[in-house]
Amino acid sequence: MKLRQLLTIELHKFRAQRGTYASYAVLAALVGLIVWGTWRYGPPHQLQSALGDQFVVGGKVLTGPLIPLLLLEFPVAVHVLIPLLIAVATGGLVAGEKQAGTLRTILIRPVRRAAVLGAKLTAAWIHAAGLVVFVGVLSLLLGYLVFGRGDLVVMSFHGPSFSILAEPQALSHLALAYGLAVVAMMAVASLGVLLSVLCDNPLTAAGLTVAVLLVLQSLRLIPYFQWLQPYLLTEHIWAYREALSATINWSELGTSLSYLAAYIAGPGLIAMCVFWRQDVRC
């Protein structure tokens, strides 16, 4: 089976490329800025105003687990930055290799195209997962380092309320939330690989991936398309929020996971079919 060797090659390329380290550096910088900003400013505005005059909280609000939570709530990270970094990486996976001619060098070896694309998809998923896990682990470590241990105050996404999760419970909720974010980013990676297969230029592929996500995000804001909302990828990227509630709605979570699974498999299968019959002329 060549899949293992091909995957080794793909992962080796990720390791050898400066762009990969640049991606991690950007995310590390974002985590660092959020930790620094929180340390200087205090809890986020929403949390401060929710707690404000109405509650007296024993202990402290600023704790280590709060930082990974803030990263998830900060839309730029999960909804813009990580998808953008994934799009750039997946753009290079097929379109970039077509442009450089290295895809031809691989395809003239005794390998099946399905194995080649399967390895690329798997590498893209691993890369996507790696970025999310990196953000989660780094933010938690830095959070603990700067703010120390403690419980987690979680804002509700459904109304003006909040819950306090004990530290072990908070960590398990955060792990689940980051796990869901990993699944969501894998779906973004699948979309990126599909567009990379369809394009001959890595920048076009990356740009298109981001554009598709932005269009889907925009549809959420247009009332006419409300009926479409439950089916959109961008709707289910938010699934991790459910894991940040004190009481998790498992049914809703299951539905979102099913959609995300479809968004991972669907573009992957379409990419496979296109790639199988595609003329490689570059």
Binding site: L6, I9, G101, R104, T105, I106, R109
Partner: peptide
């Protein structure tokens, strides 16, 4: 296809790897 060696059009390799490393990676597929 293991018995077929091919070179078609311009050479394309991973520039950030050595020639030997490129050959090892490609040979691993055979």
């Amino acid at each position: 296809r293991h018995c077929v060696g091919v070179m078609v059009e311009e050479p394309a390799f991973y520039g950030y790897l050595s020639g030997r490393h490129n050959l090892e990676l490609l040979a691993s597929l055979s």
